[in-house]
């Protein structure tokens, strides 16, 4: 973890210990972990390595029992719950493995959802295009989502590949500093997967967005700036449970 300019540090975990319940043993025990701005980081995380706990910590959904979780220079551990929720809304975009979309909203409404919870992202989105709606359309077009084939259809009728790209558009709208992708490609087939990653990288590069990409598929690792194995940084990682 050397050679990173301290100014450009975006995420830093120091002495973080975390367990879901008070009397359970730690699931996360990370001494020091840093991510720089604009980095494209691949986190290899098989099940049992504390992957969802780490994402919950970074998203500010939970706080560690010990240590500091610093994101953009702010210590999430000492923030109140609602401030962490707002912080997440303002600065972090998420893409999940599947079922990313709210089934009763249109494609565009799904994309602009973060702008409903974050004024900052709404303002940034409006500054970029004339309106959040126009910005959503721009992102969808850049992610090669066809208007007639995708945008005007109900989200439940989209293919998984299309749904994942809509989710990427949502995570990027309003230019959050960090995008966290949790196995976004595991439900995609080989061909779709590569194209998906290419589009994701393009968008992140365009905004200099820091990308944390979590996957157990090690073959994808070669496409990233840096690879980290959770098993290495998390001292509490369990060796491949059932």
């Amino acid at each position: 973890m050397t050679g990173i300019d301290p100014v450009s540090v975006q995420i830093r975990l120091r002495g973080v210990r975390f367990a879901w319940r008070r009397y359970e043993s730690d699931i996360i025990d990370i001494d020091d972990f840093t991510v720089a701005k604009g980095e494209r980081l691949f986190i290899e995380g098989p099940s049992g390595s504390g992957k969802s706990s780490l994402l919950s910590l970074l998203g500010g959904v939970v706080v560690p029992r010990e240590g500091r979780v610093e994101v953009l220079g702010e210590n999430l551990s000492s923030m109140r719950g609602w401030r962490r929720d707002r912080f997440r809304a303002d600065h972090v975009g998420f893409v999940f493995q599947m079922f990313n979309l709210v089934p009763y909203l249109s494609v565009v409404d799904n994309v602009i959802l973060p702008c409903r919870f974050s004024r900052r992202r709404r303002a940034r989105s409006e500054a970029r295009s004339s309106s959040v709606h126009a910005d959503a359309m721009r992102l969808l077009a850049e992610l090669e989502l066809d208007r007639s084939k995708v945008i005007d259809r109900a989200v439940v009728d989209l293919s998984i590949g299309q749904q994942q790209r809509v989710a990427v558009a949502r995570s990027l709208i309003g230019s959050p500093e960090i995008v966290i992708a949790d196995e976004p490609t595991s439900a995609l087939d080989e061909g779709t997967r590569e194209r998906f990653l290419e589009l994701l990288f393009n968008e992140c590069d365009a905004e200099d967005t820091t990308l944390l990409f979590v996957s157990h598929d090690t073959r994808l690792g070669t496409l990233f700036n840096r690879r980290v194995s959770l098993k290495e940084i998390n001292r509490s990682a369990v060796e491949a449970p059932s």
């Binding site: 719950g81 609602w82 997440r88 809304a89 303002d90 709210v102 089934p103 973060p114 974050s118």
Partner: peptide, 16 residues
């Protein structure tokens, strides 16, 4: 529950 998690991820508070 998935929908709730998605809403949480885009910044919704449990109160939301």
């Amino acid at each position: 529950r998935r929908e709730m998690a998605v809403l949480r991820s885009v910044g919704a508070r449990p109160l939301h």
